Structure formats: structure tokens, C-alpha cells
Amino acid sequence: MMTAIAIDDEPKAIQVIQHHISKMDSVMLLSHFYNAKDAMSFLKQNPVDLIFLDINMPHMSGLEMLNDLQLKPQVIFTTAYTEFAIESYDYNAIDYLLKPFEFDRFQMAIHKAEERINNLKKQKDFFFIKDGFKTIKIEFQDILFVKGSGNYLDIVTKEKKYTPRMTFVELIEKIPSSKFVRIHQSYLINILNIDKIENNKVYIGTHQIPISNRYKEGFFKRLNLE
């Protein structure tokens, strides 16, 4: 069974989600929140598989919340605004439910979530990338860090560097969030390969990788250094 929370500043919207979930056996709603900050505090101690997330909320929007989260659950956006639909793809959202949504449409989104989450739980210790005309197998443990540049990534391993045509969003679907963390808009690192942290830089072997202010707090929390 999937675990979930709902975040929306409108009580009626929360009630609709609760009502729909009460008809289903595949998802359990652990809690609900009327603002993003309370939800983030909960998630630090209680990881979940899925969040139902409103976008346009006071103080902190749903998109701002996702930017601040290091361990990101799967997301189903629930919103009254169509203009965020395209941007939601940047967050690899499972679905985008436009309020008011009926049970059948909600059920469809839940089925999508089940499929993705089950596939992630079957994830192995490696993944494949296309490198030119070759298909390369990469072990997670061998990755030192990843640098993003537009539609391409530099995946730096212990032995060599690969540059597949791939975005961070596509990569994050393939790798375990327990081992990797974003420390900069352009850098994702393997926590297991960190040698030291000094002067707002992570040292991995001979590489020095900058830690940006945007990701610093979340990174240190992941390492229990807050």
C-alpha cells in the first residue's frame, strides 16, 4: 500500500481527497496540511511515497516546496490553475489534477502512481545509458557526481566520464534518492563517495564541487550536520 499526505490551503479540497481515498485500498493518507512548511516538517521524520500537492498557496507555493525538498516523494498536483501544467513536467509529476476532479479521474492518477512507485521499488543497483551508438551499464556505486548542462549530463564515475543526452529529471527517475543529493543547480553527488566538505565545497577524489546557498541547508540536513 502506498503512503501519502495531502497539502492544500483549502479545507474543502482536502476533504475531497480524503473522500476519494476512502474508496480505495491501494493508498493510505497519513496526514494532511494546510501549508507547505508544516508538511515539510512532517516529511523530515515521516517519508511517504506520494504527496497530493496544491500549487498556489500563501507563504510557500507547492513548486517552491518541491525545490526545497531533498528527498522528493512522487507528486500528484491538485490545482485550480491550468497555467502550471507545463511547468509541472519539470518536476516529473505523476499527474496534474484540475479542480474540481471527480473520483474516476482521481483513480486514474492513483493507478499511474502505483505503477511508477512499484517500478521504483524493483530498481536494481545499476541503470543503462545511451552513449553514442553504445548502451552502457553504470553501477550506482561507481558514480562520483553528475553535472548538468542543458539536455546533456556529465556522469563522472570512478573510471571515466559519460555524456548522455539526458536531463536531471530523467536521471532522478533512475537513481536511488537515498544515495544521491543535489548540492547545486548543476550538480548531483553520490553521498557515499564524499571525502570531505570544506569552504562550501564537496571534495570527491580530485574533484571540488560547489555547494550553492539554495541547496546547502537541505544537503547538511541529509548528512545530519544542521
Rank of each mutant, 00 (worst) to 15 (best):
K158M: 13
S149L: 13
V156N: 08
P73C: 11
R116K: 15
P73I: 10
F128H: 13
V181Q: 10
N151I: 10
A113H: 08
V169S: 15
D131H: 14
L66K: 10
M108E: 14
F140R: 00
N67S: 01
F128G: 12
L120M: 08
K179A: 05
Q107P: 00
K72M: 05
G150Y: 00
K160F: 04
D90E: 09
L120A: 06
L120G: 01
I175Y: 14
Y91M: 10
D104V: 08
K124L: 10
F168C: 09
V169Y: 04
I110P: 03
L97D: 03
D142T: 10
L98F: 05
D154G: 01
I136N: 00
T78K: 03
T167V: 03
A113M: 09
R105V: 11
L120N: 02
R116T: 14
T167N: 04
E102S: 12
N118R: 07
L97S: 03
F168G: 11
I117D: 05
Q74Y: 07
N118K: 09
N67G: 05
F180Q: 07
S149D: 15
F145H: 05
K161G: 02
F84H: 14
Q107V: 00
L144F: 10
I110K: 05
T82G: 12
S178P: 06
F133T: 09
I172C: 11
V181T: 12
K160T: 14
E102F: 11
Y89R: 04
E87I: 02
E83M: 10
K161T: 15
K130R: 15
P73D: 09
F101M: 13
M166L: 09
T78Y: 02
D142E: 14
I76M: 09
L171A: 01
F127K: 13
V75G: 00
S178G: 03
Y89I: 06
T167M: 02
Y96R: 00
A113S: 11
K130W: 05
T82P: 04
L144C: 13
Q141E: 14
M166A: 02
G150I: 01
I110W: 05
Q123Y: 04
N118D: 03
K99C: 05
S88R: 10
N118H: 06
R105I: 11
K137R: 15
Y162K: 06
K112Y: 02
Y162P: 01
P164E: 03
P164M: 04
S177K: 14
V146M: 12
S149Y: 10
L66S: 11
A113Y: 07
H184D: 12
S178A: 13
I155L: 12
L69R: 01
D125H: 00
V169R: 15
F106M: 06
A113K: 08
F103K: 05
A85I: 06
M65R: 06
S186L: 11
A109K: 07
K161S: 12
P176A: 13
K147L: 13
